[in-house]
Structures are given as C-alpha cells and as structure tokens.
C-alpha cells in the first residue's frame, strides 16, 4: 500500500506557482512557514503583515489573511493588527533589507515592547528584487552592484547581526538563526519557526527567526555553489544557534 510522504501544505493557495528564482531558498522557507501553520492549526486564525522585496508575494502563496505593509513597516502594521485583535495569530515574513535596514526601528521596538508577534527574516546578504545591491547583512568583501570592489569598512561599515541584537531585548521570548543549506538544517529551521510561533501562542512575547538563505541569481552562482557559500562564508560570520529562549 502506498504511503503519502509529501503533499502541498493546506496553508498554500491552490494552483499557485512560486515566482521565486530557481534555486532560491525563499521557496523552502515559505513552505516551512506553511507547514508550521498547518501543524499548529493556525491558518484560519492567522493574519500576516507582508513586506516589500522578494518576500512581497507571500499573500499570493499563503491562504492567510494579509495586509500589505510599506517597506520596513511590517512589524508596526503587525503591532496594530495584534493590538486590535489579540486573539489572532499574527506574523511577518521579511527580508533582511526590510527587517534590518529600512525597518530596523520598527523591528527593534517591536522586540523592546515585547509584542506578542512572530517574525521571520530571510537573510541573503543582498537586496534581491532590485538586482543585488549591498544590504545591511552584506558580508565584508562581498561584491554587489553597489559595492563593486567588495564591501569595505571605510565605505560601508559592518554587516548587522540580527538575531543577536533581537536576543538582547527583554521583550524577546525567542531568537534564533538557522540555515536552509542542508536537509538537517532545514529540519532545525522548521523547529525554530515552530518555536517562534509557539511563544506567541503562549503569550510569552516576541518570537524571531533569522534564516540564512541563498540568492543564486544575484550571487551569480549555481544553487549548489550558493549553498556552499552559505556554509563557507555566511555561517562563519552569522553563527547558527538559539540566542534566546525563555522557555528553557
């Protein structure tokens, strides 16, 4: 007898095709979010504030009520949703530019206030949608369209370590950095997302996961090379791990 081992999550819209580039980790990340929504039974009670960038199309993929936030304001919009409807499950899914550059104030203050929200941040060290410019997480030495000779400290300063900063806030219940470069890490990533969701359900405060993610198109790499870069370069600077978990 055949056993079903793989299916499209219930939280996905029907007959939708991803618009992400081939090899991009966004697809995996969105799927993990959908699986967690499914498994925790949250789909019908969830509201998401979407972001700007490659993550903008989230409402095309997830069958979840969505409000579009201006660039960087997802967690302010989400705060409004949650304060108006505390019984709803509210989350954001943002890129590093949205979360940690243009939206840094909104993101950090959401954590400071300890808003009972969950936020997922995709860190791919570049602005993907606009064509691969230097972003807040671009690594030292990394060549982008706005750092043609590589990121140097004199011109660009240092990359932002998001999960560590979020963990510093007293209002944060959970902060972790995960990666999608291998099956083992994808499994860990899912557990982390679930944890960030669960702290909200328990009313413990702000739950956050930073996901290291590849961008083969803008990195000018094959998907395989891109994952190697995640391992060899990104993980050296952005160490994986749980930076805060008040449930343990």
């Amino acid at each position: 007898m055949a056993t079903q081992v793989f299916k499209i999550p219930e939280s996905f819209r029907k007959n939708v095709r991803y618009s992400f580039c081939p090899g991009c980790d966004h697809g995996v990340a969105v799927r993990l979010v959908a699986e967690c929504l499914d498994e925790l039974g949250l789909t019908e009670n969830a509201i998401t504030a979407t972001s700007i960038g490659c993550s903008v199309g989230l409402y095309d993929f997830l069958n979840v009520d969505s409000i579009e936030a201006p660039h960087g304001r997802a967690l302010a919009v989400a705060t409004g949703v949650k304060r108006a409807k505390p019984d709803k499950f509210v989350f954001t899914y943002q890129g590093d530019g949205d979360f940690a550059s243009i939206g840094w104030a909104e993101s950090m203050h959401c954590a400071f206030r300890g808003e009972n929200l969950s936020a997922i941040c995709i860190n791919n060290t570049t602005y993907g949608m606009t064509g691969g410019q230097l972003g807040p997480t671009t690594l030292l030495g990394q060549v982008t369209t706005t750092s043609p000779t590589g990121r140097n400290i004199e011109y660009y300063g240092y990359p932002v370590k998001i999960a560590e900063h979020i963990a510093l806030s007293d209002g944060t219940a959970y902060s972790a950095r995960v990666s999608l470069d291998s099956v083992a890490n994808i499994k860990k990533a899912k557990l982390a997302i679930k944890k960030a969701f669960e702290v909200q359900l328990k009313g413990l405060g702000f739950g956050f996961v930073e996901i290291l993610s590849s961008c083969p198109t803008n990195w000018r790499m094959t998907p395989e090379q891109a994952h190697e870069r995640v391992r060899d370069e990104m993980m050296q600077i952005f160490k994986l791990g749980v930076y805060k978990d008040i449930t343990v």
Partner: peptide
Amino acid sequence: RAYVSAESELAAINMVIGAVST
C-alpha cells in the same frame, strides 16, 4: 482598549493601518 507609545510617527500611522485592516 489599545494604546501604544510608538517609536515614531512613521510606526504610529502604520500601526493604525494594521488595526483598521481588522
């Protein structure tokens, strides 16, 4: 009812957007 001392007017008006969307 809900009250938030927002970190900026930028955040405040976006919080209004979130709240009225419900």
